[in-house]
Simulated assay, not measured.
Amino acid sequence: MALENQTFNSGFILLGIFDHSPTHIFLFSLVLGIFIVAFLGNTIMILLIYLDTQLHTPMYFLLSQLSLMDLMLICTTLPKMAFNYLSGNKSISVAGCATQILFYTSLLGSECFLLAVMAYDRYIAICHPLRYTSLMSPKTCGLMVASSWILGSTDGVIDAGATFSFSYCGSREIAHFFCDFPFLLIISCNDTSMFEKVLFYCCIIMIVFPVAIVLVSYSRVILAVIRMGSGEGRHKAFATCSSHLTVVGMYYGTALFMYMRPTSNRSPTQDKMASVFYTIFTPMLNPIIYSLRNKDVARAFMKVVGKGKN
């Protein structure tokens, strides 16, 4: 009991992923650069969509919400990791750890559902264009986005609450660069097998169910595109959907790898690399993927830049 109280009062130690060797200093600098690009890219996307009235459509509203989630996600994990590395202080308080788990899992869950909503939006736009305005009205779109936030936040509250209902009476060291509940379960002195089973079923709802919606939506989109008589229309439809499919493949793939495996089969190195991918690289790639071939976003950017010069 004394050890349990000591651990709970003093918090945890985040071992991180970098040491102070020349190679790791370079990698840390690279990650910091990626963080800056992701922060600026997502912030610019949100501002462009907010400022340009021509981008006030369901598709771009959903994209602004994706950028907001990615922006919050990198700010939940990266600043603390950078501070610990630069200061040499690897500790994190219990409150700080619980806050990271709450926000991190909430944002992951919200983004899972939002990507499914975005797939449904593309399905309606391509397969039912004449009914798009009524089926994706501002009210309907707002309700679907709010549902994504609520469902994700509910999952975050459950995961954070359950994680800190266990006792941590041994090592305070977390083999990660931020607090993630699978890594805390490893160092718990309680039997967490029941929670792992519940977590597995939660993942089916939070990950597999949205993936099913994405697969059904895009299977119908592909069939509709194949039936198109116009080569130009077919090319435009594929270009519109390819960016979303790229994001979906990266995001759901790593999420399934991370959270659909039992704790006993986990490799800390593999999990850390997967976490780096979807907490650092994916938020950076999303605005690039969505804006690289998007003429509307490029036009809005040039318009804002032109006003700034004037």
Rank of each mutant, 00 (worst) to 15 (best):
M250V: 07
V208E: 08
R261Y: 01
H235D: 14
L185Y: 06
M273W: 09
Y252S: 09
K236I: 13
G233T: 07
C179D: 04
S275L: 07
T279M: 09
F238K: 07
H244M: 13
R220S: 03
M206Y: 11
H176W: 11
A212M: 08
M258H: 09
F177N: 00
S230E: 06
A175W: 08
H176R: 08
A237P: 06
V276Y: 06
H244S: 10
H244V: 12
V248I: 13
L215D: 04
A255C: 10
P210C: 09
I280E: 01
V225P: 00
C179Q: 00
V211H: 04
A255G: 03
P262W: 07
I205N: 14
C202P: 05
A212Q: 03
G253P: 02
M284Y: 10
P287L: 01
V216G: 02
M228L: 10
G229D: 13
I289A: 06
N286W: 08
Y252A: 07
A175E: 13
C189L: 14
S267H: 01
V225L: 01
A224L: 10
C189S: 13
F281K: 05
V276P: 06
L285E: 07
M273L: 14
P210R: 06
S267D: 04
P268Q: 09
P210E: 10
Y278I: 10
L199N: 14
K236E: 14
C179T: 09
C202G: 14
K236T: 14
S243I: 12
A212E: 09
I226P: 00
G231P: 15
I186A: 11
S219Q: 07
Y201H: 13
M194S: 15
F277C: 00
V221G: 00
F277A: 02
Y251F: 09
S267R: 02
I213F: 08
P210I: 05
F281V: 05
R227Q: 13
Y218S: 13
N265Q: 12
G229T: 03
P287A: 10
T254E: 05
Y252R: 05
I222Q: 00
D180E: 13
A212G: 07
S267P: 02
F177C: 01
P262V: 08
T263I: 15
P182H: 01
V198E: 11
H244K: 11
P182D: 03
Y278E: 11
T240L: 15
L256H: 00
M194D: 15
C241Q: 04
M284I: 06
L256N: 02
S267E: 02
V214H: 02
M284D: 06
T254A: 09
Y259V: 05
L285F: 08
M258T: 09
H235G: 11
A239N: 13
S219H: 02
V247H: 07
C202M: 13
K236V: 12
Y290D: 09
L185I: 11
N294S: 13
K272E: 03
I226Y: 07
R220M: 05
R266Q: 08
T282C: 11
L245H: 04
L285R: 02
P262K: 06
A237C: 11
I207K: 06
L223S: 04
A239M: 12
S291A: 12
E232R: 14
A212N: 10
S219R: 04
R220H: 03
M228T: 07
I187D: 01
Y259T: 04
Y252C: 05
I289G: 03
